[in-house]
């Protein structure tokens, strides 16, 4: 495995341009959480010309709906959800400056093209390793859509949050590359 690349959010265009599919990345800083229900509302705000509840410039959005925090805990278990449900909204978020997405599973071709066009990347965290991932989350605040419960938009402060680059700004796809390497006829 390649050496881990350490990045701090918000991400710059240079940060993302240097990343290649397959790179192991450790993120520190702030992530914003949103699943499909929240994305629908965020994109509606943009369509109405209104402000988002967070600064999208350089933002990394984590597709997650955590389980409830136990007393004294910052967050419950918090692994990635499947990303294709956000495909319909992702280019709109890139247009306003979002630079990174964290989820699991393959993205649609037009989302991969949009990442090349708007210089953004798609990361995967380990799906189902939710209790382990929660350890790198240090502070959580609900900042919008509390009525959505687990699907509310949260501001998450993270340290050494481990991800791998799936799609880079050149249109490469780790899922395709990885399968190609290990396929047997």
């Amino acid at each position: 495995m390649s050496e881990v690349i350490r990045l701090t959010t918000p991400l710059t265009e240079e940060d993302v341009a240097s990343l290649k599919a397959g790179d192991q990345v450790s993120l520190t800083g702030v992530l914003y959480t949103a699943r499909d229900a929240a994305h629908k509302r965020l994109v509606a705000l943009l369509d109405e010309g209104k402000e988002l509840p967070f600064d999208a410039k350089g933002a990394v959005i984590y597709y997650v709906g955590p389980s409830p925090a136990k007393p004294g805990a910052v967050v419950g278990s918090a692994g990635p959800t499947t990303s294709y449900r956000m495909d319909a909204y992702s280019e709109r978020m890139m247009e306003v400056g979002m630079k990174g997405m964290i989820g699991k599973g393959k993205r649609a071709g037009d989302v991969v093209d949009a990442m090349v066009k708007h210089k953004a990347v798609y990361f995967a965290a380990i799906g189902g390793a939710a209790a382990l991932i929660a350890r790198s989350i240090k502070k959580v605040d609900v900042i919008a859509y509390e009525d959505l419960g687990p699907e509310a938009v949260r501001r998450m402060e993270v340290e050494d949050f481990k991800v791998v680059v799936i799609n880079d700004t050149n249109g490469a796809d780790l899922y395709e590359q990885g399968q190609e390497r290990y396929r047997k006829e």
């Binding site: 699991k104 995967a124 899922y175 990885g178 290990y182 047997k184």
Partner: peptide, 13 residues
């Protein structure tokens, strides 16, 4: 498993 998708679909046995 011969499809090569592996754990998390990142490539493997």
């Amino acid at each position: 498993n011969n499809l090569g998708m592996g754990p998390q679909g990142l490539g493997g046995r």
